[in-house]
Measured scan of single mutants.
Amino acid sequence: GPREVTMKKGDILTLLNSTNKDWWKVEVNDRQGFVPAAYVKKLDSGTGKELVLALYDYQ
């Protein structure tokens, strides 16, 4: 199956793709996968990378 990404509340993840309104593709610890968009919030990183903050645990 697809590689699952797990996250804990407060984690910072790299946002790869947010074109789908329900599932965003993120990368964390060299793993890529989809997380519910409602579970993360975009951060203003000030760099080229888009980052998101995990609002809830997800696994």
Rank of each mutant, 00 (worst) to 15 (best):
Q59H: 13
K42M: 13
G46E: 12
N17P: 04
W23Q: 02
K49S: 11
L16E: 01
L55D: 01
W24A: 02
D22L: 13
D30L: 07
R3I: 13
L16D: 00
V26S: 00
V28I: 15
W23M: 04
K9M: 07
W23V: 03
K8R: 11
F34Q: 03
A37T: 04
D57M: 03
V52L: 08
V28G: 06
R31G: 11
D57A: 06
D30T: 07
L15I: 04
R31Q: 13
R31D: 06
K21S: 10
T6P: 05
D22V: 12
Y58M: 02
A38G: 11
Y56E: 11
K21T: 09
L43S: 03
W24M: 03
F34S: 03
R3W: 15
K49L: 12
G48S: 09
Q59Y: 13
N20D: 13
E4F: 15
R3D: 12
P36D: 03
Y56D: 07
Q32I: 15
E27G: 09
K49F: 10
P36W: 05
K25M: 15
D44E: 14
Y39W: 07
G1I: 13
K21A: 12
W23D: 00
V40T: 02
K21D: 09
V28C: 10
G46D: 14
I12N: 01
L15D: 01
N17S: 13
F34M: 07
G33C: 12
L51W: 08
R3H: 15
I12P: 01
I12H: 04
Q59P: 15
V52N: 00
V52H: 02
E50W: 09
V35Q: 01
Y58K: 01
L15G: 00
K9R: 11
E50A: 11
E4V: 14
K49P: 15
G48C: 06
G46Y: 12
V40W: 02
K25Y: 15
L55E: 04
K49V: 14
R31K: 13
K49W: 08
K42V: 11
M7C: 04
Q32N: 07
T19F: 09
E4P: 15
K21R: 10
P36T: 04
D44N: 11
D44I: 12
P36Q: 03
D30G: 15
Q32E: 10
A38N: 12
T14G: 05
Q59N: 14
Y58R: 00
G10F: 03
D30W: 05
N20W: 06
E27D: 05
D57P: 05
G46W: 09
T14L: 14
M7F: 13
T47P: 12
Q32F: 09
W24G: 00
G1Q: 13
K21Y: 06
D44F: 11
L43T: 04
L51G: 02
G46Q: 12
